[in-house]
Design a binder for these strands. Structure first.
Length: 496
RNA sequence: GGCGGCAUCGCCAAGUGGUAAGGCAGAGGUCUGCAAAACCUCCACCCCCAGUUCGAAUCUGGGUGCCGCCUCCA
């Protein structure tokens, strides 16, 4: 069974073989920190988080690097507007990023390089490109001569002639640097300092790096000349990743990355979610203002294959919440019924922790999960397996609650539960029991019995409204009533 | 205009030559207000046209529609 990944470079799924057996070097082009992250960013972060988790589960030693772009016009603009500094703005949003991602259960990267911390590497790279004839200085700027790199366009499938023919009018009009460029498609590696903007000294004078060179430098700095997986949004294919290839490969003579992976965009009413369109929802608004459950957000994102567009709607989020209810019931099965089913280790601190769990590796569920994930990280297919396990456990849980017995034996159930917990963990889905759920003054059994008696009287008189009122009242206190044949009413305390 | 992608049930979404997974929502029944639970049953000829094939959602050609990139963007 081999893992296959879709490679943007070749436009097909390929068997995954890292440069060095057993080890994976992965780089994700992270965010520019000038504002809070929105659902589109969440998708990218979650998708690559899952790829990374899966590779690790598959036995690879993964080194995962994600950058922060902290030198950028948008950050500067924001700093100006706030009367603060570029450093202060980016620092603030980097912290916000970490808070958001922690809530979404996105694992931390092994390293988070920043452009401002990589200036030496950037300057070295620009210098090298200049020495090798791929770059030229112009009035304090340095540009990359796109025509000097034979492979230019290989990632995005573009030809230089086509691009100029199609876009020349617009580019020339909008590009203030056009007069300094030898060719309209050339791009800046270094920009001369402008008054009042942060700048760094360099052989070309005071200035700051262009966007594309940052990533080339950070990749090389942290992971070396050739990495295994370079990931990012598909809106970065051109020009960003194309330019990265041109810079890195011209300089090292080695392939920059063996696999290029790109996630699809989150859309709103079919249009890309973006700052410029103003149709975005930030992660914190979704979580705080709209009260979305982070795990439901993860489900919403993972129920689509990562390369396709994903439309963000309130209905889709609501549906994801319902799905999560089922999944959560399954994930909590062992906590809820372990005692009753006689699991001897329920009180151990490791109970329920996927890291300590053994699951039957050759079970049908694991096999199907693996087949889906091996097929270019097919998370919707993988989720199918989880839902089947979770649904089954949910039913058994209900049987246990309502009838006091299950269909399957405790050990089979335990095995199913553990399989679910372990596989869910690979997708970053986890539920923990509400320890000490805050519930005001739990009702005494006598009070409950009294209310049930009142309700029985009301029901006898066919006063359904009163009966329902009492049931709702109890429900609000976490007590669910179950009417059984013969006028008997049982009750259970919801575990929350 | 160039390059790329997508079109499968009310909604989301798998499936890449052998007769349509799953989630959400829905209908009927065992059940006797409503609710809860279980069990059973039902719920798609896969955008259109033509072709290849014993056989196509799956391959080929041609349409139609939608989206992304070509400017900062996950």
């Amino acid at each position: 069974m081999t893992l296959t990944l879709y490679n943007t470079l070749t436009r097909r799924k390929e068997p995954f073989e890292p440069l060095e057996a057993g080890k994976v070097k992965m780089y994700y082009c992270g965010v520019t920190v000038y504002d809070h992250c929105h659902v589109g960013h969440a998708r990218a972060c979650i998708v690559w988080d899952v790829v990374r988790r899966y590779l690790a589960w598959r036995g690879y030693e993964v080194r995962y690097v994600q950058n922060f772009t902290d030198i950028d016009d948008k950050i500067l603009n924001r700093a100006r507007a706030e009367g603060s500094s570029m450093a202060a703005v980016s620092e603030r949003f980097i912290q916000a990023y970490f808070e958001d991602m922690a809530r979404l259960n996105v694992m931390e990267a092994d390293e988070y390089p920043r452009a401002t911390h990589t200036l030496d590497g950037i300057k070295r790279l620009v210098h090298e490109l200049e020495q090798k004839g791929y770059a030229y200085p112009a009035n304090g700027d340095v540009y990359y001569a796109v025509h000097s790199f034979a492979g230019y366009g290989k990632l995005s499938g573009r030809k230089l002639e086509d691009m100029q023919a199609g876009a020349s009018g617009r580019v020339d009009a909008a590009d203030l640097d056009a007069p300094k460029k030898r060719d309209p498609s050339d791009f800046a590696l270094w920009k001369a300092a402008k008054p009042g903007e942060p700048a760094w000294e360099s052989p070309w004078g005071s200035g700051r790096p262009g966007w594309h060179i940052e990533c080339s430098a950070m990749v090389r700095d942290r992971l070396g000349d050739t990495i295994d997986i370079h990931a990012g949004g598909n809106d970065l294919i051109f020009p960003h990743h194309e330019n990265e290839i041109a810079q890195s490969e011209a300089s090292t003579g080695q392939p920059l990355s063996r696999y290029w992976m790109h996630n699809g965009m989150v859309t709103v009413n079919g249009e890309k979610m973006s700052k410029s369109l103003g149709n975005f929802t930030t992660i914190r608004d979704l979580l705080d203002r709209d009260g979305a459950n982070p795990m439901a957000v993860r489900l919403f994102i993972l129920q689509a294959t990562y390369r396709r567009p994903l439309d963000f709607t309130t209905e889709a989020i609501a549906s994801a919440h319902k799905s999560w209810d089922t999944m959560r019931d399954g994930l909590l099965f062992g906590y809820k019924h372990g005692q009753q089913l006689g699991y001897s280790d329920v009180d151990d601190s490791s109970f329920g922790n996927p890291e300590y769990m053994r699951m039957p590796e050759d079970s049908k569920a694991v096999r199907r999960f693996r087949e889906s994930m091996d097929d270019d990280i097919n998370t919707p297919g993988a989720l199918t397996v989880l839902f089947e396990l979770a649904k089954d456990l949910q039913k058994e849980s209900n049987r246990l609650t309502h009838d006091g017995k299950t269909l399957a034996d405790p050990q089979t159930l335990r095995s199913q539960w553990q399989t679910l917990v372990v596989l869910a963990q690979i997708l970053g889905l986890a539920a923990s029991p509400d320890v000490g759920a805050q519930r005001a003054a739990p009702l005494q059994e006598a009070e409950i019995a009294a209310l049930i008696q009142q309700r029985a009287v009301a029901k006898q008189a066919k006063n359904w409204a009163e009966g329902d009122r009492i049931r709702d009242q109890l429900k609000a206190k976490g007590i669910s009533l179950i009417d059984k044949p013969g006028g008997i009413t049982d009750w259970i305390r919801e575990s929350g």
